[in-house]
Nucleic acid binder design. Structure first.
Ligand code: SF4
Ligand code: SF4
Lengths: 140, 140
DNA sequence: TTAATTTCGGACAAATTTATCCTTAATTAG
DNA sequence: CTAATTAAGGATAAATTTGTCCGAAATTAA
């Protein structure tokens, strides 16, 4: 469904959000440990999240990452930042044009799925209580 | 969502099913033309569909492919044949364990999406009237 | 029987994604 | 100021997916 990078990104953001709830800034090594991800690859993803204004970064000792909480960050923001809008906007069959007027064979069924997915991603924020609770089940 | 190979596979199956409705057997070149896919790659996918008992193949002049209609083929069968069960069974976040007892952060929201996707794939058959109608919108 | 057609299947190549390595830049603490 | 720490970022490598090439095997038609 999502790229592996995006899976990591979601875990990263949930972990950092939970940490922040306790007033803690989160470093690369800590989050890598917490979600069991390859360190250097995780660093790249963190950079992308910073570039997309979802995180703020600080260098040096006691540096790390915090949420850019000007916005209440939704899972949707994370997925779009890492995987782009293809999953959510493009045709499930990879067709170029999609008109509800002249729908392709599987139009109706998949519109439902896609709408529900989009709605789920839009309505879930990384600082939702349910997500923060699960901070410790992000390994494996 | 699906791999490109799987997108092709779905188009292939819809096209062959529609052709069969008119009593026609379908060849590699014809289906490649009909869905605008790379020929050699399409051949591989056709082989996989044969191996998975979704298609029957015939060599030689006037050869080609027809549905193995011992079963009424569902989109679910195609997706599983090409992409496996990962999309439908595995954790959306890539976690190893998934227990509803001790659910991960995003359990509830995504269970809905996954169930609806699975249900859509299970309930749609390639010989559904709606799909056959769209035979000509598979290009692009 | 011969030639043409069509699928089969292995090897290979290109493109993309995932992951690693290493140097530089910024920041902090002593 | 110096040394330690941490993120930034470029180059590269490994793995996977996508796509190509070509000869072999089967079948049909003449
Ligand atoms: S309506 Fe058809 S063409 Fe459009 S996104 Fe859905 S499956 Fe694709
Ligand atoms: S409940 Fe959590 S662990 Fe299980 S599939 Fe859903 S997101 Fe993944």
């Amino acid at each position: 469904m999502f790229s592996r990078a995006c899976e990591y990104a979601i875990k990263i953001m949930i972990y950092i959000a939970a940490n922040e709830q306790e007033g803690k800034r989160t470093g690369l090594k800590e989050v890598t440990e917490a979600i069991s991800s390859p360190e250097a690859f995780t660093a790249k993803i963190l950079q992308q999240l910073v570039k997309n204004d979802l995180l703020l970064s600080f260098r040096g000792p006691s540096g790390g990452f915090i949420l850019n909480d000007k916005k209440e960050i939704r899972l949707h923001d994370i997925v779009v930042a890492i995987d782009g809008t293809h999953l959510l906007n493009d045709c499930i069959l990879g067709l170029n044009e999609c008109s509800s007027a002249n729908p392709c064979p599987v139009h109706d069924k998949f519109l439902l799925v896609k709408n529900q997915l989009t709605e789920s991603l839009l309505s879930t924020r990384v600082n939702d209580e349910a997500l923060l609770k699960g901070k410790n089940s992000l390994k494996n």
